[in-house]
């Protein structure tokens, strides 16, 4: 896999440099860190929102830094959770005294590193709360394992918790609404080609010409089942089926996200969306809002995920609230 990079070991630093120079009016980099914050952080009186994770999921997470969404995003190495010291810097930079909420995707590494940062921040007298997103229904939610993974549904948590913080919610209120989103959001994905970590230089897995990987993670980790490539309609059917088995969406108002994993043409995402919409209509669900595009990618992996979020009036209002984040303008 060819990459347009300078040095595979420096991709994260180079990316951050390119990101900050692209949006100099809205974000800044904390010196000597891989932390991107709102230019106006800390926002006085506002609860600070910090998320992040390994790099390679762009526009996640830095693309969601902006008014009405995140205050800071911490970038780790590619597919590698950032370290506690970096997360701590982010927490300190966005805390205005109203406390900080960490939005963590449920991976052992992310949870541990963010938890350690939270412990350090608390030791410095900062109020920190955290929520862990685990929307991926491909993986069983078992108390014997580390549970389900966090994938594209995380973006809805950023958006809605961000809106709540922006309108002045307290740390507990922001945390509560983030948890409400987490309870009501489910996702699942499929990949038709792998991705290559720049420093690894070879694809994360191999797929035959007629195979796809169902229940794919967003780190090039293998999915849960390998099978013959299916049509867009079949894929839409399989992913939504699995989601409905996990959570009942009957008669609900839902937000839909069709997320490209990196290399999938937007054309294909729209084709999948066509079928997803038809399925939801069939089942009597009411689509409130639809998002089609790349929100939580996996480098140049081909494939997509479907995310459904059950909405009540509060969530609708917060989803609609303005955001100036480069990757989620609303």
């Amino acid at each position: 896999m060819k990459k347009i990079v300078n040095d595979p070991e420096r991709v994260v630093q180079d990316m951050i440099q390119g990101l900050v120079t692209a949006h100099p009016g809205s974000v800044k980099q904390l010196p000597d860190t891989t932390v991107i914050t709102r230019k106006d952080a800390p926002v006085s009186g506002k609860v600070g929102l910090v998320s992040g994770g390994g790099s390679g999921h762009e526009p996640a997470h830095a693309g969601y830094v902006g008014k009405g969404m995140l205050d800071a995003a911490v970038a780790g190495e590619v597919f590698t959770s950032p370290t506690p010291d970096q997360v701590l810097e982010a927490i300190k930079a966005v805390d205005s005294g109203a406390g900080v909420l960490l939005i963590i995707k449920n991976y052992t590494g992310d949870v541990m590193n963010f938890e350690m940062a939270a412990e350090m921040a608390e030791a410095e007298g900062i109020q920190v709360e955290k929520v862990v997103v685990n929307d991926d229904v491909a993986v069983e939610d078992s108390s014997f394992t580390s549970g389900r993974r966090g994938i594209a549904g995380t973006v809805f948590v950023h958006k809605i918790a961000g809106a709540m913080a922006e309108k002045g919610g307290s740390l507990q209120e922001v945390k509560a609404v983030a948890e409400k989103v987490i309870r009501n959001v489910r996702s699942m994905g499929v990949a038709t080609s792998p991705c290559t970590v720049p420093a690894a230089g070879k694809p994360s897995f191999e797929l035959a010409d007629d195979e796809m990987e169902v229940g794919i993670g967003i780190h090039g980790e293998p999915g849960i089942e390998r099978k013959k490539v299916a049509t867009a309609d079949e894929i839409a059917g399989e992913l939504t089926d699995k989601i409905f088995t996990d959570l009942d969406f009957a008669n609900s108002d839902v937000a839909v996200m069709i997320n490209g994993l990196g290399a999938t043409p937007e054309m294909e995402l729209y084709i999948v969306n066509g079928k997803v919409q038809a399925i939801l209509a069939d089942q009597g669900m009411n689509v409130y809002k639809t998002f089609v595009g790349e929100f939580m990618t996996s480098l140049e992996m081909a494939g997509c995920s479907v995310t459904l979020l059950k909405l009540d009036n509060q969530l609708k209002e917060l989803l609609d609230a303005p955001s100036t984040a480069p990757a989620f303008y609303s």
Binding site: G54, G76, S81, T108
Partner: peptide, 8 residues
Amino acid sequence: KVGGAAGP
């Protein structure tokens, strides 16, 4: 410097 699960 390590990050991920192995770092902590």
